[in-house]
């Protein structure tokens, strides 16, 4: 009996020893040299593997950072400037600080403002709808409301508001990785400069139809009237294809354009309430729309969307 145990121990130990030797030589022979800095850099990346930098995962980005001499074109939107400066320190390379960005939804076409004229019954993704036809409403540019952007977000920073049937970005969770921008077939989502206190002013519409057609399809569409262009003191607004666009860099958040927009397609978000000017007839008429225009920024307590004329 004891001999059997003895033989077992000896033979198994021998097999183990031989395997260890083989493994050692194999490891030596097939060793791949890797720059240790790649590991170092990767440690400092957010490990979200979201692909927002354009590389497959954080490891891929770390390799690219180590390899390239000039890393000023490379940027991790999730980690932001802090991460990039740490990385630059490790590598001894220079980076420029970039403005942090945040995703904004450029459509306010809730069912109340944008009547549905047909009903879609098919696979529940925006990209299939947009391949098929112009959508359930008369506006072919706006949000299809099936949540492709929500599906791709790795950070749970976007959700569909059931009432407005529009996506809502949670500013604090958004890392500006750009996944939703790519996923949206109608290019509604834009990454815009993040301002102090998450304040935002932007044209919440992408409709490029002529004013009359756009207005007929949606109450809150940009009709390309250029009223905002005239009032803007900083040349920040351009109108192209009957659609206004506010340059986030030039814009000084003065809010004048918001006041003059006849269709309320320019939104101001996270501003303190402004003083109500007495006796403004237009303001009263428009004020009725206020509840519907709160495009779901319910996550932020100090969020006030100003609707006065």
């Amino acid at each position: 009996m004891s001999t059997i145990i003895l033989f077992t121990i000896i033979s198994l130990s021998a097999i183990g020893a031989i395997a260890a030797i083989i493994l050692y030589f194999a490891a030596q022979k097939f060793k791949v040299f890797e720059d240790p800095r790649i590991d170092q850099v990767e440690e400092n990346l957010p490990a979200a593997n979201c692909g927002g930098c354009g590389y497959p995962g954080c490891r891929g980005f770390a390799e690219a950072l180590v390899k390239s001499d000039d890393i000023s074109d490379l940027y991790c939107p999730v980690g932001g400037n802090d991460t990039m400066s740490k990385v630059a320190e490790i590598l001894g390379k220079a980076v420029e600080a970039k403005d942090p960005l945040v995703a904004v939804i450029r459509c306010s076409g809730s069912p109340e403002h944008r009547k549905k004229v047909n009903s879609y019954d098919g696979a529940s993704t925006c990209v299939i709808v947009s391949g098929l036809y112009s959508g359930e409403t008369a506006c072919q540019y706006g949000c299809h409301g099936l949540g492709d952007c929500v599906e791709v977000c790795d950070f749970e920073a976007i959700y569909m508001d059931k009432e407005t049937e529009l996506p809502v970005v949670i500013d604090d969770a958004c890392t500006a990785c750009g996944a939703c921008v790519k996923a949206c077939p109608n290019d509604i989502i834009e990454l815009r400069k993040k301002n102090k206190k998450d304040r935002k002013i932007f044209v919440s519409c992408v409709n490029m139809d002529k004013g009359g057609i756009a207005k007929k399809a949606c109450d809150v569409a940009c009709i390309g009237c250029k009223a905002c262009v005239k009032v803007c003191a900083y040349d920040a607004i351009v109108v192209e294809n009957f659609l206004a666009y506010i340059d986030p860099v030039k814009c000084k958040l003065c809010r004048k354009c918001v006041e003059v927009c006849p269709t309320n397609s320019i939104l101001e978000i996270n501003f303190p309430p402004r003083k109500v000017k007495p006796a403004q007839p237009v303001g009263e008429a428009e004020a009725k729309e206020t509840p519907a225009r709160s495009t779901g920024e319910k996550e932020n307590d100090n969020n006030i969307i100003n609707q006065e004329g």
């Binding site: 098919g122 696979a123 993704t125 990209v127 299939i128 391949g131």
Partner: peptide, 9 residues
């Protein structure tokens, strides 16, 4: 199942 919808995509 909407097989062709996704296959077309």
């Amino acid at each position: 199942l909407p097989l062709l919808d996704y296959i077309r995509l």
